[in-house]
């Protein structure tokens, strides 16, 4: 079974790059361009992992993090923050709100992120080899 990923990101370039990368590894990726549609997707579908940007239109990433525990289908889904915010206080807040990992996009590559997703979900790598 392929892992199901939700990536909440308003920048199309980042969303498509990560989505394509994860699809190469056999993941099934849904994209949400803002916090609101991200939360809607989380209520409708159970995901294996959530990738979340912090600076988002309308509902920001921190607010999304706050609301996830109340969403039955995804309350235990691991969240990786992918943001270009990098201060210690942002990282601390994200962790306190339940984020598993915090990756600064500028200091990472799509391959690093894919590796992290694979290691957290324990899925996808085989799919990539078999494909």
């Amino acid at each position: 079974m392929k892992g199901k990923v939700l990536y909440i990101e308003d920048e199309t370039f980042f969303a498509n790059t990560i989505s394509n990368k994860l699809k190469e590894y056999g993941f099934d990726v849904d994209l949400a361009a803002d916090g609101e549609s991200g939360l809607r997707a989380l209520t409708e579908t159970a995901y294996d992992i959530i990738l979340l940007d912090l600076v988002l239109p309308h509902i920001g990433g921190f607010d999304v993090l706050k609301q996830i525990p109340a969403i039955e289908k995804n309350k235990k889904t691991p969240v990786i923050v992918l943001s270009n915010l990098s201060s210690d206080s942002d990282k601390r807040t994200a962790r306190q709100l339940g984020a598993r990992e915090f990756y600064v996009k500028m200091n990472s590559t799509p391959s690093n992120i894919a590796t992290l997703v694979i290691s957290i979900t324990g899925q996808g790598a085989d799919a990539h080899i078999s494909s």
Binding site: E11, F14, M106, P110, S111
Partner: peptide, 20 residues
């Protein structure tokens, strides 16, 4: 510094895709 980050990341990610 904040405004530079998005384009720098885009360059970085595109370049690593190109190299791959």
């Amino acid at each position: 510094t904040h405004k530079l980050r998005t384009p720098l990341t885009q360059i970085g990610w595109s370049v690593s895709a190109l190299l791959e």
